[in-house]
Design a protein around this nucleic acid. Structure first.
Lengths: 171, 171
DNA sequence: CCGAGGTTGTTAAATGTTGTACAAACTTAT
DNA sequence: ATAAGTTTGTACAACATTTAACAACCTCGG
């Protein structure tokens, strides 16, 4: 995750210029908090995944596959689901394949296509790792918010997620 | 930014086991929304930075330096401020140096040390890019939240940011 | 059936990142 | 002053990601 600051040392509004809608102090505080939490949380969760010999990306693949019908998914769909390029996914599946977590499977009916299929080891790994991961998520994030905050934030974020998803779709 | 899902297809609670505190439906919805927004927002903002020939990381460096006294900062401090390894920062500054945005400067009083110093071009770039970036942040995020939501979310995130910062500090 | 045009997934090369080790310089206790 | 220990930034090598190009395959209008 990267940092993006908005309002900065660079901000002035001489008369007669194109107005730039700088962030207010509160907006900026919030924006930076959001960035910092996103980044540090990702960092910390990744850290706590390391003992399991998994990177965040690996774990994400495991999650998506484990929730898919037959625990498998077409490469392109998996790339879309995990917001990666097809190339990157291809490399990543290669790595996970040599780690035995996943298998490439021919796709009946479309000889171009392949399934990424969760192996038994992949599934077991998922079972083993998920509880720890949930604990991490709780400890560093969820359990630090009240149920009301969670509801409110979800209500705030859901439309934004939708907006961004739509943008990406037609990119 | 990576995906981390908590509650998943893998979840059951047979009697007599170590209880795993799976996420409730609401918690999970929220958690996934948070992940998705963080990831897609980062993606989109990075995208809108491209026409300026800047990556998110470059922009972050520019922001931090432009807000620093004398528009410069020690390498290590800059690495800490931007949550990067020293090695990565060193490479990145090298790149930005050859792009003319930044300059390495000897550090009087500590002959080991170096400043990363914003060049005039770096400063001008910042001035040119910041308004567009602020607009992006507003359009895709801030302006989609009410002032009340912003206050509430800041109040929720600030302690979490602090927690994560503390964790990282002693890592 | 054919062929133009799209899709699928991989590959090679360039680029970026991470982890480790290192030399150089600083600090502190003796 | 000196040695032990710390801090600073870089360099190398291993690894990951991106970009562009590609072969193989599907689709669908003619």
């Amino acid at each position: 995750m990267d940092m993006h600051s908005a309002d900065t040392a660079v901000s002035s509004s001489p008369l007669g210029e194109e107005e730039t809608p700088w962030l207010s102090a509160k907006e900026q505080q919030f924006w930076r908090a959001h960035l910092e939490v996103a980044k540090l949380l990702d960092y910390q969760l990744g850290r706590e995944l390391q003992p399991h010999n998994l990177a965040s990306n690996d774990y994400e693949i495991l999650v998506v596959l484990s929730e898919s019908p037959d625990r498998r998914m077409r490469m392109t769909d998996l790339a879309t689901a995990t917001l990666q390029s097809k190339s990157r996914l291809s490399h990543q599946i290669t790595r996970m394949e040599s780690a035995g977590l996943v298998l490439r499977q021919d796709c009946p009916g479309d000889r171009r296509g392949l399934y990424a299929h969760l192996t038994e080891l992949g599934w077991e790994t998922m079972q083993k790792v998920a509880p720890d991961h949930v604990r991490s998520v709780r400890h560093h994030f969820i359990d630090r918010l009240s149920p009301e905050q969670i509801d409110a934030m979800y209500a705030a974020l859901a439309p934004i997620a939708e907006h961004l998803r739509a943008l990406r779709g037609r990119a």
